[in-house]
Amino acid sequence: DELEKRVKKIARKLNLSLDQVEEWLKRNNNDELVEAVKRLKKK
Rank of each mutant, 00 (worst) to 15 (best):
L33V: 02
K13L: 15
K41M: 09
K13S: 13
K38F: 00
V21P: 00
R12P: 00
L14T: 02
R27V: 09
L33P: 01
W24E: 01
A11K: 03
K13P: 00
V34L: 15
V21R: 00
L25D: 00
L25Y: 07
L25S: 03
D31C: 15
K42N: 10
E4P: 03
N28P: 01
R12L: 10
N28G: 13
N30H: 15
V37Q: 02
I10L: 13
E2V: 12
N30I: 15
D1T: 10
K8W: 15
K42G: 07
D31E: 12
L3R: 06
Q20T: 03
W24Y: 13
N29W: 09
K41G: 02
K41P: 01
R27F: 12
N29P: 05
E2T: 09
N30D: 11
E32G: 05
K38R: 14
L3P: 04
K26M: 11
K38E: 06
L33W: 05
A36M: 05
R6K: 11
K41E: 03
S17A: 06
R27W: 11
L40C: 05
L16D: 00
E4D: 03
L3V: 05
L18D: 02
R12V: 06
E23T: 06
R6F: 14
A11L: 14
N15G: 15
V37P: 01
V21G: 00
N28M: 14
E2A: 12
K26S: 10
V37G: 01
L14D: 00
K43T: 05
K42S: 11
V37N: 01
R12K: 12
V21I: 12
K5Y: 12
A36P: 00
D19C: 14
E2H: 09
N28H: 13
V7P: 00
L25A: 15
K5L: 13
K5S: 12
K38H: 06
K26N: 06
L3Y: 10
L3W: 10
V21T: 04
N28L: 13
V7F: 04
L33Q: 02
L33R: 02
N30E: 15
K5G: 08
L40T: 02
Q20R: 06
K13H: 11
D31V: 13
S17K: 05
L14R: 05
N30F: 15
L33G: 02
V7D: 01
V37E: 01
L25V: 03
R6M: 15
R12T: 07
E35D: 08
Q20Y: 04
D31T: 14
K26P: 00
N15W: 08
K41Q: 07
D1W: 08
E23A: 11
D1S: 11
K41D: 01
K5Q: 14
R39C: 11
L25P: 00
V37H: 02
D1Y: 10
K43E: 06
L25E: 00
N29L: 09
E23I: 09
W24N: 00
L33D: 01
E4K: 05
W24L: 11
E4L: 08
L25W: 03
E35N: 08
N29H: 13
V21Y: 03
I10K: 01
L25Q: 00
E23V: 07
K13I: 15
L18H: 01
A36G: 02
K41N: 03
D19W: 07
A36W: 06
L25T: 00
D19M: 06
N29D: 08
K13C: 15
K8S: 09
V21W: 03
R12I: 09
I10D: 00
K13T: 12
K9V: 12
A36H: 03
K38Q: 11
E23G: 05
L18M: 05
R12G: 04
L14V: 01
E35S: 06
A36R: 03
D1V: 09
A11H: 02
N28A: 12
V34E: 08
E35W: 04
N15C: 15
L40Q: 01
R6L: 15
I10S: 00
D19F: 05
D1Q: 10
K8I: 15
L25M: 06
K38Y: 02
L40R: 02
K8Y: 13
L33A: 02
L40W: 06
K8F: 11
L16C: 10
K13Q: 13
E23S: 08
D1P: 07
L33E: 02
R39H: 04
L40H: 02
L33C: 09
E32I: 09
K9D: 15
W24C: 12
E4M: 12
A36T: 05
K8A: 14
R39K: 07
L16P: 00
K42W: 04
K26Q: 10
N28Q: 12
N29K: 12
